[in-house]
Amino acid sequence: MTQAPDAPSRPLIHAISLTKRFPVSSGWFRRDRSFAHAVDGVSFQIQRGESFGLVGESGCGKTTTGKLLVRLVDPTEGKIVFDDGEDEPTDIASLSGRSLKSFRRKAQMIFQDPYESMNPRRTIFDTVAEPLKVQKIGGAIERVERVSEMLGMVGLTPPATFLFRYPHELSGGQRQRVAVARALVIEPIFIVADEPTSMLDVSIRTGIMRLMEDLAARLGISYLYITHDLAVARYMCSRIAVMYLGKIVEQGETEEILHNPKHPYTQALLSAVPIPDPSAARPPVKIEGGVSTPIDPPPRCRFYDRCPVADAFCRDSEHPPLEDKGGGRMVACYKA
């Protein structure tokens, strides 16, 4: 999955100033006054066959961005141009009814928690066959065959022994394989993977990561890979975007960002990752305090409160734009 996206000039997904605000004091009679700016003017492109990573701490808006791309959440503003090369490019944000349902054949999501992402009362067959059923694809016999084939593909063999078991009879790793099978069963071309390995044990994790890589290469799938773990992003994504409080603060080739982070937040994030080597000493993390609130933030740089290099200019200016600093590297910082 590390191959560079070369040929197609048009990206599979082009998110343009994507914004999602959640009303904070919601009520039927009350008028909404405050908004949580979960995702705030985020733009990025995902090429065909590419795996693009969204990295950030909890609450930075990465999961909401993922859900926006599969329309589990409706955007407040912005466009998501989806261009699969077959049909006309469409704005996912404006789809509804029948066209939304047919878009759902092409984009799927894998969820973080393998224990919660499957209905405990439905068998593995029911779970994996659900997309086929709601999209009215195939009859009962084809569905059983298709599901068995998928289970075999994700390494649950022999498939027949898994079809009529319940999620609770499977281990976490096996369940996450079922989740992958469910996402792939209708042959999508784009998958949002929301921390698919973060709840798994290390010895199981690599297997799932490999599986997702292999399948993407084999079936030509693009990923939006959401993770809080920079090390995982390094192995799964050719390019990453680092998010902080609803904004992308840095974006570029994964290896380059990891070796030469330019935004002070990315630098802090990297230096906070523990190193599995008892004799190595990490430099101290420079930033202080916790993540500030996303509710009605001031217009200045979102990172200002915690930034070690911020000055009066940062305080009095708007949030810095995401600027190209050469070599495809985009950084949103006045000081970088």
Partner: peptide
């Protein structure tokens, strides 16, 4: 917890 908090 997040890595930065974990670090601290």
């Amino acid at each position: 917890l997040d890595v930065i908090v974990q670090d601290r």
